[in-house]
């Protein structure tokens, strides 16, 4: 009897492996292997015809002595920290609002999802039009209505302002996701906690600090970490809106796929970007996923 059961279990685990194998093979070949292959490539000078010559650490030396690389590291950190902060705050506010009952709430919830759902490419041109120096409403308000500026200017073509536009755009694109995550946690908070607090005479603000925020602590933590990691690798939202904001991803894209097509140096950049992230990913895995 015992022997028979064991073979059944064995049979079952064989089936389990068979079922998961396609997923494992695809992930191994298209994610794990490329990560290592990329490290290998970063030690080579990759020519356009496909030839590659070993050059040791020269790609890294070239990258690290390039001042534009360091400025793009700075821009990346500014972009990531400010978008993470703004997205989380906005998401929290919207989640608190949507958790209350009001007329047409269903419709409002659908409309708020739009920025997140729509392709990046179909939203960037409307944002560009909004800031367009000739036709845009932003310049109209700034110059003709509020008279803050003397003349209309191209906001997005100035890297200093473009960075801010990219931050707000990224927040606009991502806050619905954050709000959904927070809302689904909000809905699981035991309402008796609030009732008890009300009996004790707690006001709305007190209830928020003493019940809501502690209950949300875990989900907020994982959202902040995930947002940080995702935005660190963000490419499309920045690149398609403006090519004046050179975050690391955009810098790498330009290095590897435009002009001299330097895949080797691009690989070195990716290795650096990845190692900057690995620490954070490990924290996420340790704290949030509890390995």
């Amino acid at each position: 009897m015992a022997v028979r059961k064991l073979t059944l279990q064995e049979k079952d685990s064989r089936l389990g492996i068979k079922l998961v194998l396609p997923s494992v093979i695809i992930i191994a070949l298209l994610i794990i292997y490329p990560i290592f292959y990329n490290i290998y490539l970063s030690f080579f000078d990759v020519k356009m015809n496909g030839d590659a010559f070993f050059i040791g650490l020269k790609n890294y030396a070239n990258v690290l002595t390039d001042s534009t690389f360091w400025s793009s590291v700075g821009i990346t950190f500014f972009f990531v920290i400010s978008t993470t902060f703004l997205t989380t705050v906005m998401g929290l506010v919207v989640a608190l609002v949507m958790n209350k009952k009001f007329p047409l709430r269903g419709l409002v919830r659908s409309l708020v999802l739009l920025p997140y759902v729509a392709p990046v490419i179909s939203t960037v041109y409307s944002w560009q039009f909004f800031f367009d120096p000739v036709n845009g409403i932003f310049m109209h308000v700034l110059v003709d209505v509020l008279h803050i500026s003397q003349s209309r200017f191209n906001l997005i073509s100035d890297p200093k302002y473009a960075l801010w536009v990219a931050v707000v755009f990224s927040m606009w694109k991502a806050f619905p996701f954050t709000y959904l995550m927070i809302l689904s946690r909000l809905q699981t908070i035991d309402t008796t906690l609030y009732e008890a607090a009300e009996i004790d005479g707690a006001g709305a603000i007190r209830k928020f600090w003493s019940i809501t925020l502690p209950e949300l602590f875990f989900v907020l933590g994982s959202i902040v970490l995930l947002r940080f990691i995702w935005n660190f690798n963000k490419f499309e939202e920045v690149y398609l809106l403006t090519d004046n904001v050179k975050v690391l991803s955009v810098y790498t894209y330009f290095k590897a796929f435009t002009g001299s097509l330097d895949l080797g140096q691009g690989s070195a950049l990716v290795v650096i970007q990845f190692s900057l992230l690995v620490g954070l990913i490990l924290i996420y895995v340790k704290k949030v996923l509890k390995w």
Binding site: P34, I35, N38, L41, L263
Partner: peptide, 24 residues
């Protein structure tokens, strides 16, 4: 290990894989 590995690879953004996948 597979269960955890799935979550790990999910942190790896597209830009990090673009160059090696294109070269391959």
């Amino acid at each position: 290990i597979i269960q955890r590995g799935v979550l790990f690879v999910y942190m790896v953004g597209g830009i990090l894989l673009l160059i090696p996948l294109f070269k391959i």
